[in-house]
Design a protein around this nucleic acid. Structure first.
Lengths: 202, 202
DNA sequence: CTAGGATTTGAACAGGAATTCAAGTTATGG
DNA sequence: CCATAACTTGAATTCCTGTTCAAATCCTAG
């Protein structure tokens, strides 16, 4: 029997189970048993498909990065003007709350980058693509005359991504001095300073 | 024998040993043995002084927060003009590199805030004080006419703190697209936009 | 329908770490 | 200097988790 289609399906199930487990229990508290239970299989089966647990973690990280960025791009590109796209980028970049599983999982996974270069590469690649997303919006806005950039598009874009990461960190960490409305206001103010345009939320 | 002075000394030794261990091995990889070895005592002794390990982690977190903020304030207040103070705030707020143990430990500890409200409170208190530090600098600069604030001092200060946290996160996580010179440039550019003044590094 | 490889299971095993604790050592008040 | 309580130790114990594996089951090519 050739490696069946089901084999890949199972791996995907395990990745999803891992993501749910991480969101639920926190990355360092996830046991193989949790993943197995979440996927509805036995612990031995997890090891069968992923002899290296680190590979499962990596696949889970990669998956959540892809999902997050893809969804972000889709939402942004559904908007018309550069101003609207910028607001959409801001809104999709901040965690919607403590119950935002994708954002929470993304941060949990990113903290693996400290000690693992493959996870660091994943984090860097997401960062670069997010910077690219913002930079494109800024460039387009400038070329149409909609924006007047305060600094080069790439620098402004990098600042916005880093700012949203910092705000996201505090939003997800129970910092009671930062809530979503405040974070959004600060992001829009920063975007406004970067573009010279007053941005209004939807 | 009343609880001796040595008792408190030992607890401080254990806190320092914990901080060293966390910096060295990462928070989730720290074993009681490591702390004991680092402090030069037996594992049993650690438990004697800290029956609850979580309390030791909390004390260690509190200690590193205090040290970090105190040192930051001292450096900033040694400067004369508001502009110089702002630059000093930026320079003390970014991790100096991957080997910046205080910054690394601070981030490791902060990630406990996800699941623990006492750690979240600690993180919030540091955040608030950092915002206060920046806000004071901005206010003073405005009152002397040195700065022209683009938005209320508190909002600008909060943005700067969140931005430096976001940049710090990437600096410490091996994001190869962000290095210290870039982070510093972006921070100074943001500070410049907030104050209307061109800030030059030392 | 069937043979044989793929997959799954769950019990047994192994290892590492926290925790306990009885015994020994140290420090201090009187 | 003594009595007593604080402190320390390290070996024994317990707990938890990953890992192995032989047996059972499932799938699919032919």
């Amino acid at each position: 029997m050739v490696r069946s289609k089901k084999h890949y399906t199972r791996r995907e199930q395990l990745i999803d189970a891992t993501l749910r487990s991480v969101a639920e229990r926190g990355r360092d508290n996830v046991r193989i048993r949790d993943i197995a239970a979440e996927a509805g299989v036995s612990p031995g089966s997890v090891l069968y498909h992923y002899p290296e647990l680190s590979e499962l973690m990596f696949d889970a990280h990669r998956t959540v990065v892809e999902r997050f960025f893809r969804s972000r791009v889709e939402t942004v590109e559904a908007r018309g003007t550069a101003g609207d796209r910028l607001v959409a980028a801001v809104d999709t970049g901040l965690p919607s709350g403590r119950d935002d599983d994708v954002a929470r999982t993304l941060y949990e996974m990113h903290s693996l980058a400290d000690r693992s270069s493959v996870h660091a590469a994943l984090m860097t690649s997401l960062f670069d693509r997010e910077v690219g997303l913002y930079a494109t919006i800024l460039e387009v806005g400038r070329s149409t005359g909609e924006f007047t950039l305060a600094q080069p598009a790439r620098a402004g874009a990098t600042t916005l991504v880093a700012l949203e990461d910092g705000l996201g960190l505090h939003l997800l960490s129970n910092n009671t001095s930062v809530d979503l409305p405040l974070a959004r206001r600060l992001m829009l103010a920063a975007a406004q300073q970067a573009t010279g345009v007053a941005l209004v939320g939807e």
